[in-house]
Computed example of a mutant assay.
Amino acid sequence: MSLFGFIGAGNMGFALMKACVKSFGQNQIAYYDLSMEKCSFVKEQLNISAENDNISVVNKCKYLVLAVKPQFLPEVLEEIKEAVSDHIVISIVAGVNIKSIKSILGSATRIVRAMPNTPAMISKGYTGICFSEDNFHDSEKELIYKFFNAFGKYDIFNEKLMNAVTCASGSSPAYVYTFIEALADSVVSLGIPRDKAYTMVSQTILGAAAMVLEGGQHPAHLKDQVCSPAGTTIAGIKALEEFGFRNAIMKATDACYERAVELTEKN
């Protein structure tokens, strides 16, 4: 018997499994994926053999992690619904709410809905989580928190905010990567070698984020500290404002949120 069972061993599923191995041990992980290639990869990387099917995973675990694509989830839930009993189901499936999962698994099923992000792949992730309105023992919650701590940080939200969580942390790494690419390209045009450009920009973002997280100062205050009167930085900030940098971020959030709502309603 294992603590955690994973249905789905894609990029995110594997990342969470890898983190769980470090925190809970190999013998606490069971998994299955339709792709034999993915199962072979997990076996090679973590030395854990796949189960024979999804039902076997359900029967071997207490905490069942759903890590499949949204379009495949209904079929998976129909397949396993008779096997799910006193399990706690942890869903990282984007755009699928608790009500939708309960509609197939049953109203008594205890569910944790989660939105991790890709930095979880290197244990630097952020996850927004919400609990179904069911009874969870303190010991169960402690273990769930340990699970999410294994691959980064987490916060608990009301489910109605989960689409906003998608905007703030689920999708936003792509915005950061776009910023890194654009800033690196701009300094490459000034003569900086590309490999050094990516390192410089990425390390700068890492350091700036650490100052917000560890220093406790408002981002606007930290920005002002860099902006000397009539200096280079304020000239750059002025250009960002002129070309709508803030508005572009806010519009991206609006578009992301609207799409998240559409997907939730569809699923």
Rank of each mutant, 00 (worst) to 15 (best):
L34A: 09
A220V: 12
Y177K: 04
H218Y: 10
E82Y: 08
Y126V: 13
H221C: 13
A30E: 03
L213T: 10
A67H: 00
I156Y: 03
F41C: 09
K251S: 12
F147Y: 12
A252Q: 03
K196W: 13
K43D: 13
F14V: 03
V76I: 15
V112R: 01
E241C: 04
M250H: 10
A208N: 05
K38T: 07
K266S: 09
L16E: 01
F131D: 04
A9R: 01
L190E: 14
L161K: 13
K69G: 06
N247W: 10
V187A: 11
K146R: 14
G191V: 09
S186W: 09
A260G: 04
V93A: 07
K38E: 05
N267I: 01
R110V: 04
P74D: 03
S103C: 09
I144P: 01
A120S: 15
P219Y: 06
S228M: 08
A108T: 14
I156V: 15
P119S: 09
F148N: 02
V65F: 04
F24W: 07
I237K: 01
A150S: 15
E79T: 14
L77T: 05
A235E: 15
F41H: 11
D33W: 03
P70N: 07
P119A: 04
S23D: 12
K81D: 10
V89W: 00
V188M: 11
E37G: 10
G231S: 08
K69H: 06
Y126W: 09
V187L: 13
G152R: 06
N54H: 05
M200I: 14
G216Q: 12
T204Q: 08
C167W: 01
A94Y: 02
V226S: 06
K69S: 08
A252R: 00
V21G: 03
Y198K: 08
T264M: 07
I104L: 11
L190T: 11
L206R: 14
I88L: 08
V21S: 05
S2H: 11
P229V: 08
M1D: 12
I111P: 00
I29V: 11
V212R: 06
V76F: 02
V201T: 08
S2Y: 02
M1K: 14
V187F: 06
P229A: 09
A168C: 15
D138G: 15
V84F: 03
H218K: 07
E133K: 15
T118I: 14
E258G: 02
Y31N: 02
A9T: 06
C167R: 01
A120C: 14
F136I: 08
N52H: 12
S139M: 12
C39S: 14
P119V: 07
G25E: 04
N163T: 02
G10S: 08
L3G: 02
A208I: 07
G95L: 00
A174V: 06
D185P: 11
K196N: 12
